[in-house]
């Protein structure tokens, strides 16, 4: 009988190489409470401006949509359902020429204006990226101070896709000149309700 030589899989090879490396057993550090008390709203607004986002109210949003006479507007936010003139398609490719998407964010982070969204907030995963302009509706009392608090808040949430979005698509790849509107949304407006 010919003995078959067992060839180690790459997985096992890598794992065994790691196992065969003597190392310490340093424990994970505790993350202290870095929460900042005080005015979260002001910090959030300042952070958003730094990221080239804007805060608008309902009236300004209406003016924005009216004045541009956008053809394809999709609102997943109950608040602004009336602006919506299309439904979520089956395939994201059909969103290629959409003008405005209005969605609701779960909460915002004051230190950097990141807003947490999960799959169910987006309708389609591609929506916040492919739309020309993005509007996120955020409840005023849904702010946390920093990213530690943010992940505490997300907790064990198990959405297939989650996103911290902090501003419009931007690039500085040409001579470090900041350009808003690289591949994704050319603007981000946040409506605080």
């Amino acid at each position: 009988m010919v003995q078959k030589k067992q060839i180690m899989s790459s997985r096992d090879y890598i794992l065994s190489k790691i196992r065969n490396t003597p190392r310490d057993k340093r424990p994970l550090p505790e993350i202290p409470d870095f929460k900042v008390d005080g005015e979260l709203m002001d910090r959030f607004k300042r952070s958003l401006l730094m990221n080239k986002g804007e805060i608008v109210d309902a009236k300004q949003l209406e003016e924005f949509i009216d004045s541009h006479q956008f053809k394809k507007v999709l609102s997943l936010s109950e608040e602004f359902r009336s602006f919506s003139n299309l439904d979520i398609p089956d395939d994201a490719h059909q969103l290629a020429d959409m003008d405005v998407a209005i969605i609701s964010g779960q909460f915002g982070v004051a230190e950097n204006a990141a807003i947490w969204l999960e799959e169910r907030d987006m309708g389609l995963r591609a929506l916040p990226f492919i739309t020309e302009h993005l509007v996120i509706v955020l409840e005023k009392d849904q702010l946390v101070s920093n990213m530690h608090e943010a992940y505490e808040r997300i907790g064990k949430g198990a959405s297939g896709f989650g996103l911290f979005i902090a501003g419009p698509s931007k690039t500085a790849d040409i001579e470090q000149s900041l350009v808003i509107g690289a591949h994704g949304a050319k603007s981000l407006r946040v409506v605080l309700v």
């Binding site: 959405s159 297939g160 989650g162 902090a166 698509s169």
Partner: peptide, 14 residues
Amino acid sequence: QSITNYNSHFRSPD
């Protein structure tokens, strides 16, 4: 920057 504008968490395929 305080954070990158897009921070995507991929957990399972669509």
